[in-house]
Simulated assay, not measured.
Amino acid sequence: MVENRDSLKQRLKAARDRQGLDRPQAGQGGGPTSPWGFGLRAGVEVFSALVVGVGLGFALDRWLGTWPWLFLVFFVLGAAAGVLNVYRLFNPRSGARKD
């Protein structure tokens, strides 16, 4: 009887792990937990989105000869994407923050 309970617990734990229902243990990933971690991640999110937007806009402008229009459009899109990523980071219902 005790073996059946232990076996059931092991199978339930394995199923929960496969489905991702258990929270990760401390130090096993997840997301930032300190205010400095959130601030650093927010800054990296905005900066990286801007770099990608500016890079794409600049490359497309050089290729198509439309300087500076696509650069400006992709700069604004990159900025919007960065702000949206930060919003998702701080909005607990969005699912991006796992703590």
Rank of each mutant, 00 (worst) to 15 (best):
Pro35Gln: 12
Val73Ser: 11
Leu72Gln: 12
Trp69Pro: 03
Arg16Glu: 15
Trp63Ala: 03
Asp61Asn: 06
Leu40Asp: 04
Asp17Leu: 14
Gly65Tyr: 05
Ala49Leu: 12
Gln28Arg: 13
Phe38Ile: 01
Asn85Tyr: 09
Arg23His: 03
Arg97Ile: 00
Thr33Ala: 09
Val2Thr: 14
Val44Gly: 09
Gln10Asn: 09
Pro92Phe: 00
Val46Pro: 01
Lys98Ala: 01
Pro24Lys: 05
Gly30Leu: 01
Leu70Gln: 13
Lys98Tyr: 01
Phe75Lys: 11
Gly57His: 02
Trp36Leu: 15
Glu45Phe: 10
Arg5Tyr: 15
Gly53Ile: 00
Pro92Ala: 03
Val86Asp: 01
Gly78Cys: 07
Asp99Met: 11
Ala79Gln: 13
Arg18Tyr: 14
Arg62His: 03
Gly57Leu: 03
Gln28Val: 05
Val46Gly: 01
Leu50Glu: 10
Leu89Asp: 10
Leu40Glu: 06
Ser7Pro: 05
Ala96Asp: 09
Gln10Thr: 09
Val2Gly: 12
Gly53Cys: 02
Arg23Gly: 00
Phe75Leu: 15
Leu50Lys: 06
Val83Arg: 08
Pro32Met: 05
Gly20Ile: 08
Glu45Tyr: 10
Lys98Asn: 06
Gly37Phe: 02
Arg62Val: 02
Asp17Val: 10
Val46Ala: 03
Gln28Trp: 05
Phe71Lys: 03
Leu77Cys: 10
Leu56Gly: 10
Thr66Cys: 05
Phe75Asn: 10
Leu89Tyr: 10
Asn91Ser: 13
Phe58Gln: 08
Arg62Asn: 04
Gly20Tyr: 07
Arg41Ala: 14
Pro35Cys: 10
Ala59Ile: 03
Glu45Ala: 13
Phe58Arg: 05
Leu84Val: 14
Trp69Arg: 09
Arg11Ser: 13
Gly95Asn: 04
Glu45Gly: 05
Trp67Thr: 09
Val86Pro: 02
Ala81Tyr: 10
Pro92Ser: 04
Asp17Phe: 09
Gly37Pro: 01
Phe74Val: 06
Val46Cys: 02
Gly31Ser: 00
Arg11Glu: 14
Gly31Val: 00
Leu72Cys: 14
Asp99Asn: 13
Phe90Asp: 00
Pro92Tyr: 00
Asp17Arg: 11
Arg41Glu: 13
Gly82His: 04
Trp63Ser: 02
Phe74Ser: 05
Leu84Phe: 15
Gly30Asp: 01
Leu21Asp: 06
Gly95Lys: 04
Gln10Arg: 11
Asn91Ala: 13
Leu64Ser: 08
Leu72Lys: 07
Gly57Tyr: 02
Val46Met: 03
Tyr87Phe: 13
Ser7Lys: 15
Val51Pro: 02
Arg11Ala: 14
Trp36His: 11
Trp36Ile: 10
Ser94Val: 04
Arg16Ile: 12
Asn85Leu: 14
Phe58Pro: 00
Asp99Thr: 11
Thr66Gln: 08
Leu60Ile: 07
Ser34Pro: 01
Asp22Met: 02
Gly37Asp: 02
Phe75Tyr: 15
Val44Tyr: 08
Ala81Met: 14
Arg16Ala: 15
Val54Pro: 00
Thr66Gly: 04
Gly43Trp: 08
Arg97His: 06
Asp17Lys: 11
Val54Ser: 00
Leu77Met: 12
Ala15Trp: 07
Gly29Gln: 07
Trp67Met: 12
Leu56His: 04
Gln10Ile: 07
Gly78Trp: 02
Leu70Lys: 06
